[in-house]
Nucleic acid binder design. Structure first.
Length: 559
RNA sequence: UGGGGAUUGGUGUAACGGUAGCACGACUGACUCUGGAUCAGUUAGUCUAGGUUCGAAUCCUAGAUCCCCAGCCA
């Protein structure tokens, strides 16, 4: 039995444990900025950080990296906590970088006193200009102020004496460093803004680089795991900690998640919401945790997905079908089966007695014998799926057609003997069939076979419902694949939501509550939407079942 | 033109100088009262060129390609 594969971060931790680098501790953290909703990419990070802590018997904190009050909001703080919990994780400590602002301020004075930080009066444009280009930058004229003047100015910045943007506190490092992050990075900027967590206590706010490492240090984090784009920041992370002479965690970078047919940047997710391309952060088409949850995904499926895709430093793009496979796999085992007809086609069983009703036993879950059975009513007038009948069936189509016999699941074999059509459009509006009483329950005593088994509902007993069919938000695997001059919005899928309002479901669904998940046999997995009410059910399609016929059919069309 | 990373089947991911493996997909077939599920099989890969070595995905040299960095965002 080969040892299970370990990713590079586990190997680093193993090594640190062996050398006793952190006294045998493992302490991670998930550090979101509360400026948006969490998405599936964050789930990867959450599973990684909390998963590592669990695996090594360590701890994992949830810390809000709330250093930019103009973008942050209490709504996001609450949503993030809900999402982390929903994913199945419990943090050891709940912290806010903003609770460290006083300590951070004291440390800033320490650096000033050490001659390693200075107050700079350059405008934002000048700072950019002085930072220079690939060849090098030039030093700020304010770089060599005296310690006393710096201290005085910095205290007055804190006291609110200066307007936004007029001054900054910068670290004195190296204006010619090939790493731009070391060209005297800004530590504090003046921002007279109310903060969602600490209110109006501050008018100077620390930059990410100045806050993050020290926050990790305060919390005793051992392994500070972040995404690849922060690799360039690690020298600065290390520089601040060393300059301060405080406990020094280890920053490790991994590749963030990319998925086909969607976007995962916060900026774009905000745009989708604010520009009305979706109905909100929890729109089931969104790759947000809230959207995916509403769509009907399970936390187990998401965790399995995060495990499957692995952790590495290669910038990969994961095919979204991998995510879909995970939810199918999970729901296949757990979701109760029911019958529901999305696009109803009326079927009259000519030789079935008027007014008669029979009840058939239906298996709730073939993957789980303990799920038991339920009764499904059958009568003379039924609905089947429009897709399940073709007047002239193409090759390899083996559902219902004139003269053909199929099985109605759990009920009878029926044969199509006629149809009524709309005189104007020619569309088939009603089917006439006969049933074979000898096939009661679904098997023929003479052992004859049928090639198809259809789902159905009894017209008189069916529940009417709305069903929302979701498809990918974008029409191309890479939403950025656009003609010159256009952007990802050009690839928005106009069919990403199709609402069906005339669906018919078996009566056992009458008591279904928001969040309940089912497999509609032969169609897919569906979940009751929060908009649903007794008597006015609303379902979201989580994902279709694997559909071999659809594949055959689209291959035929291509020919 | 500077710096930091990366590169293994279609997509991900292992192999840590010694048989290139696994998962997903795709394709066959079996089975099936879901064209679902399940089972069996097939397919297909080390970025390039040199070198070291009995032996290289792995080490060395040169090159190619891709990603990130010049916010008072994170």
């Amino acid at each position: 039995m080969p040892a299970p594969a370990r990713h590079f971060i586990q190997e680093i931790i193993d090594e640190d444990l062996k050398t006793g680098k952190f006294g045998g501790r493992v302490h991670t953290r998930f550090p979101p900025e509360p400026n948006g909703y969490l998405h599936i990419g964050h789930a990867k990070s959450i599973c990684l950080n909390f998963g590592l802590a669990a695996e090594y018997g360590g701890k994992c904190n949830l810390r809000f990296d709330d250093t930019n009050p103009v973008k942050e909001d209490i709504e996001y703080i609450n949503a993030i906590m809900e999402d982390v919990r929903w994913l199945g994780f419990q943090w050891d400590g709940l912290y806010y970088a903003s609770d460290y602002f006083e300590q951070l301020y004291q440390w800033a004075e320490q650096l000033i006193r050490a001659g390693k930080a200075y107050v700079c009066d350059l405008t934002p444009e000048q700072v950019a200009e002085y930072r220079g280009d690939l060849k090098g930058g030039k030093e700020s004229p304010y770089r060599n102020r005296s310690i006393e003047e710096n201290l005085d100015l910095f205290r007055r910045m804190r006291a609110g004496e200066f307007p936004d943007g007029s001054r900054t506190l910068r670290a004195k490092i190296d204006m010619n460093s090939p790493n731009f992050n070391l060209r005297d990075p800004v530590m504090y900027r003046i921002l007279h803004a109310e903060h969602p967590h600490v209110g109006n206590k501050w008018c100077i706010y620390p930059m990410y680089d100045w806050a993050h490492g020290q926050s990790d240090s305060i919390e005793g984090i051992t392994h500070s795991i972040c995404t690849l784009e922060f690799e360039n920041h690690r020298p600065l992370y290390d520089w601040f900690l060393d300059a301060l002479g405080i406990y020094h965690p280890r920053q490790i970078e991994f590749a963030r998640l990319n998925l086909t047919y969607t976007v995962l940047s916060k900026r774009r997710l905000v745009e989708l919401v604010t520009e009305g391309h979706v109905k909100g952060w929890d729109d089931p088409r969104m790759p947000t945790i809230a959207g995916i949850r509403r769509r009907g995904y399970t936390p187990e499926a998401i965790r399995q997905f995060c495990k499957d895709i692995g952790v590495a430093k290669f910038n990969s793009v994961i095919d979204i079908s991998r995510l879909e496979n995970c939810v199918r796999d999970d729901l296949n085992r757990r979701a109760p089966r029911v019958m529901g007809v999305l696009r109803p086609l009326k079927v009259v069983i000519d030789n079935y007695p008027e007014g008669q009703v029979e009840e058939f036993d239906a298996v709730n879950n073939p993957e789980d014998a303990s799920a038991g059975t339920r009764k499904v009513p059958f009568s003379k007038v039924l609905y089947i799926e429009q897709e399940d009948f073709r007047e002239s069936p193409p090759k390899d189509y083996f559902r219902l057609a004139p003269g053909r016999e199929v099985r109605l699941r759990y009920a009878y074999f029926i044969k199509c003997v006629g149809m009524t059509k709309d005189e104007k459009t020619g569309a088939v509006t009603e089917l006439h069939c006969t049933y074979d009483p000898a096939t009661r329950g679904g098997n023929a005593p003479d052992n004859r076979k049928v090639k198809a088994t259809l789902h159905w509902v009894s017209a008189a007993h069916a529940l009417k419902a709305e069903v929302r069919l979701y498809d990918y938000l974008f029409t191309k695997p890479d939403p950025d694949d656009v003609p010159e001059g256009q952007d990802y919005r050009a690839n928005l899928n106009p069919q990403s939501l199709v609402t069906l309002t005339d669906c018919r479901l078996e009566p056992s669904l009458a008591a279904a509550k928001p969040g309940d998940r089912f497999q509609f046999e032969r169609l897919g997995y569906f979940c009751v939407d929060p908009d649903s009410k007794p008597g006015a059910l609303v379902f979201n399609r989580t994902v279709t079942l694997r559909d071999t016929w659809a594949k055959i059919e689209s291959a035929q069309k291509k020919k």
